Simulated assay, not measured.
Amino acid sequence: MRQTNIILSLDQFYCIKMDIELARTFLEIVSAGSFVRAAERLHVTQTAVSARVQALETQLGRPLFVRNKSGARLTPAGRDFLQYATQLVQIWERARHQVAVPPGRETVLSLGGEFSLWNSLLLNWLVWLRRDRNTVALRSHVEAPDRLMDRLQSSALDIAILYAPYHRPDVKITPILSEDLIAVTTDPDNRTLSGENYVYVDWGPDFANHHDTAFPGLKDAGTFVDLGPLGLRYILEAGGSGYFRTRAIQRFIDEERLFPVESAPTFSYSVYAAYSRRAPEEIIDWALNGLREVAKQSFDKWV
């Protein structure tokens, strides 16, 4: 692989970086819908966000936002600039991503996952990737779904695993696994979902929406966990009820340690991979094959 030397003066570097920060801030405001929420996402003050927008508007010679009580909306000039800001950030992130390849590595693969998916799906995936091809440098991020999608769209991230990704320009989505979630209890004489002993497991936003509609009284359960195995081990030790993956609990049903709540609805549990269209196709195919293999091999262990 040919090595390319890129030499920038310090002034040139800071000028490029500053322009990228201005464009990134602009896109964050568009995504968040307000200067306040954009400042929170960027971990800077609202004053800093306002100053960046003012600097950008000065360079372009046009106002980009109209601010009101409900947030901020784009002006016609802002709508025109949106596509250019997106392209600017994407090109910069991809260039930074490829130039920063560590010595001894051929390329960089940047991965992400939702908080409740890092253990152990993302972890096992990273292990598989390293063992299968150690010439690829790995970067991992655990963040909220919106941030992961933003990173994918800007090409700062190659692939992310999420419960319910939504479509964005230049981002593709593919299913990784799907299974039913059923309600079970440890009490054979009371096969209901009781608020007193109910354990709410965070199976993602789709589950939350359907669950809250079916069980409004269980929305604020006394026990909440964000990892399936933890919730399952808890009710097996302490007793209680909750929703769990069918394959993960089948042996406990067979052993009569858990009992299905037949009156409760069944919900679907799915995990998807979202990936950047701009990432190299060969490296994406390899990484997704590894993800599917890991998900299949460790299915009963991690959810």
Rank of each mutant, 00 (worst) to 15 (best):
P102D: 02
P102L: 09
P103K: 13
T107Y: 11
V108Y: 08
L109N: 10
L109I: 14
S110M: 03
L111K: 12
G112Y: 04
G112V: 00
G113T: 01
G113R: 05
E114M: 07
F115S: 04
S116R: 01
S116E: 06
L117P: 02
W118C: 11
N119E: 13
N119F: 13
N119I: 15
S120K: 08
S120V: 05
S120P: 08
L122I: 07
L123T: 09
L123Q: 03
N124M: 02
N124P: 08
L126D: 11
L126Q: 13
L129H: 10
L129R: 07
L129D: 04
R130Y: 02
R131G: 11
R131Y: 12
D132P: 04
D132H: 11
R133N: 15
R133H: 15
N134H: 15
N134I: 15
V136S: 05
V136P: 03
V136E: 13
A137V: 07
L138W: 10
L138F: 10
V142C: 10
A144H: 03
A144T: 03
A144I: 10
A144S: 13
D146P: 08
R147N: 08
R147L: 04
R147T: 04
M149C: 12
M149G: 05
M149K: 10
D150H: 14
R151V: 04
R151K: 06
R151S: 14
L152A: 08
Q153E: 15
S154R: 03
S154Q: 07
S154A: 02
S154Y: 06
L157S: 09
D158Q: 09
I159N: 02
I159W: 00
